[in-house]
Amino acid sequence: MSENHHFLVQQVGQGDKQALAALYRAYERPVYRFIVSRLNDPHEAADILHEVFMDIWRVAASFEGRSQVRTWIFGIAYRKVIDAHRKRARVTVTDEVPETGDVAEAADAGFAAKQEAEHLRYCMGTLSDEHRSAVSLAFYEDMTCAEIAQIAGVPEGTIKSRLHHAKKLLLHCLSGRIRGRALA
């Protein structure tokens, strides 16, 4: 699969539109899901997805194959979303982990939240972009720590730390929302 995608990128670099279409079909869903999970705006996410593949068309010839095609494409998407956040001048940061709440209780709440996609979406939306990116790549795309680190351009330890904080924030948020609903 990976070699096939590498070949497709080479073909795109030579101006092969059909190869670009094949690459689009292979990566559209995961890349779009990654983008929309960070923006919460399907229209803007569609525009950025488009920009990602236009960039692939423009720069495929310079792809040297030192990284996997998947990490290369997600890396482009990662930076595009950072740029979109800058344009919005949006600051969505919830980096402080509240002290209240018990992990075991939150874990139960997290288990219950399996059926609660709405709560999960809401709580993902409260995370900073860095946290959300790490969670999205780890749990939507099932990437290794090394792959996520390469995409974000940071050491693996940073990714583990981001995921650790994101997990605490998510569990706390889910716990609060589900407890709130139970009391209502």
């Binding site: 869903r29 874990a107 399996k114 997990k167």
Partner: peptide, 22 residues
């Protein structure tokens, strides 16, 4: 318990249906 909670979060995310531009 943490492992179970993370597994539940991942399952919830994987189950989401995303409508793409297609």
């Amino acid at each position: 318990a943490e492992h179970e909670a993370l597994a539940a979060i991942r399952s919830g995310m994987q189950a989401e249906d995303t409508k793409t531009p297609g």
